[in-house]
């Protein structure tokens, strides 16, 4: 008779563990699959007391994609899926190129990446994102056309049943 309660307990534990695993997987999926709109800023920035100059004549390649130029004092937006990305900066003057693997650790809705800081090898490359009043700059061409959801409104006539 002592076997019965143990069996029930074991089943319950297994089920709870299973549910916990599924929940954990959900969070992981969300994390690695979420497409975030990351702002890459090319203004002079000051982080941890160190000044970084805006980069001149720089083009950036994210994750081996298309090369885009960023003017000094400008910023571009790039959609990135997941957390780990390679950002490659190529400075035409002097032929320098810097490649860095970036892990998006902050909430990209309130922070953006400072390209000068990235180029300068800073540890913390995040600067606060200005308030939402500013319209987003046009997205860098990433190969995927930005098609909005089709405009059809509401269910239409073919509702089932009566």
């Amino acid at each position: 008779m002592s076997a019965a309660p143990n069996l029930g307990m074991r089943r319950l534990l297994i089920r709870v563990a299973l549910v916990a695993a599924l929940v954990a997987i959900s969070f992981v999926m969300y994390d690695i699959g979420k497409e975030r709109n990351v702002l890459l800023d090319n203004k002079s920035a000051s982080i941890d007391g160190v000044e970084y100059e805006a980069l001149v004549g720089v083009s950036i390649i994210v994750d081996g994609g298309k090369k885009t130029g960023v003017r000094p004092d400008a910023r571009i937006a790039h959609k990135m899926v997941g957390r780990t990305h390679t950002i490659r900066l190529e400075i035409s003057e002097g032929g320098k190129s810097i490649e860095r693997t970036v892990r998006l650790t902050m909430n990209m809705k309130s922070w953006m990446i400072s390209l000068p800081a990235l180029a300068g090898g800073a540890r913390d490359i995040y600067i606060p994102r200005p308030a939402a009043a500013q319209p987003l700059p046009p997205p860098s061409p990433s190969g995927e056309p930005e098609t909005p959801a089709l405009g059809d409104d509401g269910p239409g006539e073919s509702l089932m049943g009566i």
């Binding site: 599924l22 997987i25 959900s26 992981v28 999926m29 969300y30 690695i32 699959g33 979420k34 497409e35 975030r36 899926v81 997941g82």
Partner: peptide
């Protein structure tokens, strides 16, 4: 809505719908 893409997106959709 949450812009979770690719296979992780599909898996997440499946897990939510379960």
């Amino acid at each position: 809505d949450w812009a979770v893409v690719g296979i992780p997106g599909m898996v997440l959709a499946a897990l939510i719908s379960m």
